[in-house]
């Protein structure tokens, strides 16, 4: 909070702006010296110097994308910033923090990740809607309210979960006593008799860190697309006996999405 309370606002210029550090709780400054950063579309608010923003599909970035970007579903949401200068990142006046990973892995809600260094590799988590960063480097994430770090074993509210590092992926936990039986079913269905709204949690076990935001307002969900139709992929629909597509009509390459199937063609 450099701006308040003030005799006057702090005026920043490229010399006083920090390099790869927070300007205040809501704004992060990235320094580019001929280097590159991956960046979610539209999160740049201002920059000094000369920079270029290119979509992931840009030909010259092919090599970079091959080594550090492994999530085709999110490709349209991300750009690569290159050039030299200082760039300010922010997201809807949410809290912004940077984190350093060292030979580590961290999984984060896809809407919360703002930017990362290409020394990290981005992959889709097996948990839908989450992304995993692997390697060494810095990344920037937004949260609604400051982030709290917790250690497993812990059960967390799904809406407060920002991400987790090093520990195994979470599992669902339902309050058994509350959810079962006739009364439980009625309560769950109607909310009558007082559903506390906390019957369902994510449960973490093992060694690691869990990141929570101090609010249950979610970041706008980024479209995560559909997981590939493959056997063994959760939600992929490729389960034997419940085929993801109609029997007898194998999916042809170039088929128009799943429109035909939806219309029963």
């Amino acid at each position: 909070m450099t701006t308040y309370p003030g005799a006057g606002p702090v005026i920043h210029d490229p010399m006083t702006l920090p390099a790869d550090d927070s300007v205040n709780a809501y704004t992060f400054c990235v320094e580019l010296k001929g280097s590159e950063w991956f960046l979610q579309k539209g999160k740049m608010i201002a920059y000094y110097g000369s920079m270029e923003f290119n979509g992931i599909g840009h030909g010259r970035l092919d090599r970079l994308v091959r080594t550090s970007f492994h999530s085709p579903l999110h490709a349209s949401d991300w750009v690569v910033a290159s050039g030299s200068g200082k760039m300010l990142l922010a997201d809807r006046a949410f809290d912004v923090n940077s984190y350093d990973l060292e030979e580590g892995n961290l999984t984060i809600r896809s809407g919360n990740l703002l930017a990362f260094q290409p020394t990290l590799a981005l992959k889709q988590s097996i948990v839908p809607g989450f992304l995993t960063l692997i390697g060494t480097g810095k990344f920037v994430a937004a949260s609604n309210g400051p982030v709290v770090f917790m250690e497993p074993p812990i059960r967390v509210d799904p809406q407060a979960l920002v991400g987790w590092a090093d520990c195994p992926s979470p599992c669902h936990h339902y309050d058994h006593g509350y959810m079962t039986g006739l009364m439980g079913g009625l309560r769950a269905l109607t909310g009558l008799g007082g559903a506390s709204g906390e019957e369902h949690q994510f449960e973490f076990v093992g060694a690691g860190t869990v990141l929570l935001q101090s609010s249950e307002t979610l970041m706008a969900e980024q479209a995560t697309g559909a997981v590939p139709h493959e056997p063994g992929v959760p939600g992929g629909g490729g389960v034997p006996g419940r085929p993801g597509q109609q029997a007898g009509s194998p999916r042809l390459p170039g088929q128009l999405g799943d429109l035909q199937r939806r219309f029963g063609l």
Binding site: I11, H12, D13, N24, I45, Y48
Partner: peptide
């Protein structure tokens, strides 16, 4: 402003580029 504003100086050697939405 929505969130504390960041004040950025512009001088002849440091032109600034800004996102219209911010």
């Amino acid at each position: 402003s929505d969130g504390p504003a960041v004040v950025l100086r512009v001088s002849s050697q440091y032109p600034l580029t800004v996102d219209p939405g911010a």
